[in-house]
Computed example of a mutant assay.
Amino acid sequence: MEKSRVLVVGGTGYIGRRIVRASLAQGHPTLVLMRPEIGLDIDKLQMLLSFKAQGARLVEASLDDQAGLVAAVAQADVVVSAMSGAHIRSHNLHLQRKLVEAIKEAGNVKRFIPSEFGMDPSRMRHALEPGRVTFDEKMEIRRAIEEANIPHTYVSANFFAAYFCPNLCQMRTLLPPKEKVHVYGDGNVKAIFVDEDDIATYTIKSIDDPRTLNKTIYIRPQENILTQNEVIAKWEKLSGKVLEKVHVPADEFLASMKGCLTNFEIGEDGAEATLLYPEVQYTRMDEYMKIYL
């Protein structure tokens, strides 16, 4: 079967660059939107040029130029948006409305994957600020997609490994603690940790799959469904060092989150990525953490 042509929007971002690499690796004709707003950002420009050297085609268009954006979208079968969803830059998510409008006008796109990739926003109504605004904006984009009758797939990958695993779920750092670790509540709330490259791999595998059309795919690697205590134990085994545990009472932190990340059944409107694509050898978290030793 001929591979779909993939247009990646936000291809120089944290997830976007991985989406581009995964699309190329899986043999898709890959286009990357190059926005004139890049200005003097030499790092982004050099990344785009490196994609070009790997076989991607750069398509120049601005989100503020509807005609140009429609022309860019019309060159692809699938559009993947990886625009930043960090709450400090959450206005970028709203810019996807322009992308939705362009896809609707172009009329040829067989699948749109909006920028989500973290927790399923439809299950995060309890979230607190400042993160809540990001989930609300993602739901607004979902409504716009569905009202426009655009074929879509939503991707939920829960916790990005680099942000939550090597630091043993500590706040305000990305590095493993050296002497002591804060344990939230009893440390037994389960979460799902996913390697960011695996997120991209599963995303691209889903784009031509009829089983994922108009559904949410949940990336749930069974060996990466871990409690904080289990993550800490893995690090202690790898490092050979036992950390002092400082317990933070549940009523001070994560009380409202308890059990919300893994305790729901996937219904008919969803699918589990590791079951759909068992051939993917996903990264286990003990392997992921080895680079931090």
Rank of each mutant, 00 (worst) to 15 (best):
A102M: 03
T227F: 08
N263V: 07
K178S: 08
A255D: 14
R18K: 10
R211Q: 14
R111L: 12
L213I: 00
S256C: 05
I217L: 09
V59N: 13
R89F: 05
P177A: 13
E146Q: 13
L33S: 11
F193K: 04
E244R: 06
L58S: 04
K3C: 02
G27F: 08
K180T: 09
N167D: 04
E137F: 09
L31G: 00
T201I: 13
V8K: 00
V20M: 00
V9M: 12
K178L: 10
G55V: 09
V20Y: 01
K138M: 15
Y202I: 11
T201Y: 01
I199T: 04
D43W: 10
K234Y: 03
M257T: 11
G55T: 08
Q54Y: 06
Q46K: 14
Q228K: 03
H91T: 12
V79K: 02
E129G: 07
A86I: 05
T153M: 05
A76W: 14
D41P: 02
K215T: 08
R89S: 05
V181G: 05
E116M: 07
L243R: 01
Q281I: 05
L128A: 07
K98G: 15
I103K: 04
V248Y: 02
A127C: 06
V6Q: 06
A157K: 07
V189N: 11
C260Q: 12
M83Y: 02
E223H: 14
A53F: 12
D286G: 12
Y292M: 07
S122D: 12
D186W: 00
F253W: 06
T12I: 11
S90C: 10
D120I: 08
L293F: 11
H94W: 09
